[in-house]
Design a protein around this nucleic acid. Structure first.
Length: 358
DNA sequence: AAGACGTGGGA
DNA sequence: TTCCCAAGTCT
């Protein structure tokens, strides 16, 4: 084959973006950037990269932080499990590597939240290891270049793709080559409407020659999002004129693991304020003291990749703090709650209807 | 091995 | 409005 690696290096020399995490070979910083960029656009992740490193400049500061603090910095980025894994992996590094962040694939792959791609990226960028870092960009480029209808769920297909990528890493700086492969997929060999006229591989690209660029790589079938109906119950009261609410920390299995929101009734259908309490599964008992007045918010539609949440907020204003706090809930002053990590849905509600709570 | 896990942006 | 995502990992 023509020297694709050389073509790619030259393309990268000319076209690579000046991204903040490319200025360093510190594996800690590269790790943070790689995790932030998982399933996340550069434009969306960049402010978080700066904020995260400012808050946690090194692995030890991250390891010694509380999980609440880590989640708080991550608030708004999504896929919050990443923040939990980051925290856990930092502790692993302190305990198992004396706080020195590893740069070898075999060590990296053992860390929580670091999979095949991220381990290879850090190992090649920071350790010079010749391991292929195949992300969505690289997969797209290679599948098109060689017209491969690989099954993304097939382990053997992915092994095959790795062998092809390794071919690009021979005799050169593997970190730079991996970066170049990724950048090429991100900027030139884009998912939709790539500008193949401008592509240095135009003559060699099998997908381009055969007019199947748009069909590759093969995408897994998409599942239609399921609708869930949330009715949040907001117990609101005042202490010395300051508004308080009842909140709770979410479980680890469902969406928004370990983040904070309000007591919640989930139903198979939405129900109205009037229906609240009349349906069998509208659980939470009437508080003591009794509700002074209550009203229902408008419906908030929260569209996610795999689910659509229709949420409403039933405000129940109490004359004083509830005598009995439901299991798992606790009282908090509304201002303090603003400082806790919460899903976007809750932030939106607070920004929007927060006035009602005063 | 398939499904879950978020968000904001663009077509 | 609705759909498709964007530098994956975990279970």
């Amino acid at each position: 084959m023509a020297d694709n690696a050389a073509v790619l290096r030259e393309w990268y020399r000319v076209h690579s973006r000046d991204l903040p995490w490319r200025k360093t070979k510190d594996p800690y910083k590269v790790w943070i950037s790689e995790v932030i960029l998982q399933q996340t656009r550069v434009i969306q992740g960049t402010p978080y990269y700066h904020r995260f490193l400012k808050t946690f400049p090194d692995v030890k500061s991250l390891a010694s932080a509380t999980v609440e603090k880590v989640l708080g910095v991550w608030e708004g980025l999504g896929y919050y499990r990443r923040a939990l894994h980051l925290h856990e992996a930092a502790r692993q590094v302190v305990e198992q590597h004396g706080g020195k962040f590893p740069v070898h694939y075999k060590d990296l792959i053992r860390l929580k939240g670091i999979g095949d791609y991220t381990a290879a990226a850090i190992a090649s960028l920071c350790g010079g290891e010749a391991v292929p870092a195949i992300d969505g960009n690289v997969r797209r480029f290679l599948c098109r270049l060689y017209q491969l209808s690989l099954n993304p769920a097939s382990a053997s297909d992915n092994q095959y793709l790795k062998k092809i990528a390794v071919g690009f890493l021979q005799h050169h700086d593997p970190g730079t080559l991996n970066q170049a492969l990724i950048e090429f997929g991100a900027l030139q060999c884009t998912p939709g409407l790539p500008d193949c006229q401008m592509c240095p591989f135009q003559a060699e690209c099998l997908a381009c020659q055969n007019g199947v660029v748009e069909l590759l790589p093969v995408r897994p079938g998409r599942i239609k999002p399921k609708t869930r109906y949330f009715t949040y119950i907001l117990y609101v009261w005042r202490e010395n004129g300051i508004p308080f609410v009842l909140i709770r920390q979410r479980a680890t299995k469902d969406i928004w693991a370990k983040m904070y929101d309000f007591p919640l009734i989930e139903s198979t259908e939405g129900f109205t304020s009037a229906e609240y309490g009349t349906k069998p599964d509208s659980g939470i008992p009437e508080p003591e003291p009794a509700t002074v007045r209550q009203w229902m918010s408008e419906t908030y539609i929260h569209q996610l990749t795999h689910q659509r949440i229709e949420a409403r907020f039933l405000m129940k204003q109490l004359s004083a703090a509830p005598a009995l706090v439901p299991q798992g809930c606790f009282k908090i002053n509304l201002m303090e709650f603003r400082g806790l990590a919460k899903p976007r849905l809750i932030s939106r509600f607070l920004d929007n209807a927060g006035w009602d709570l005063r």
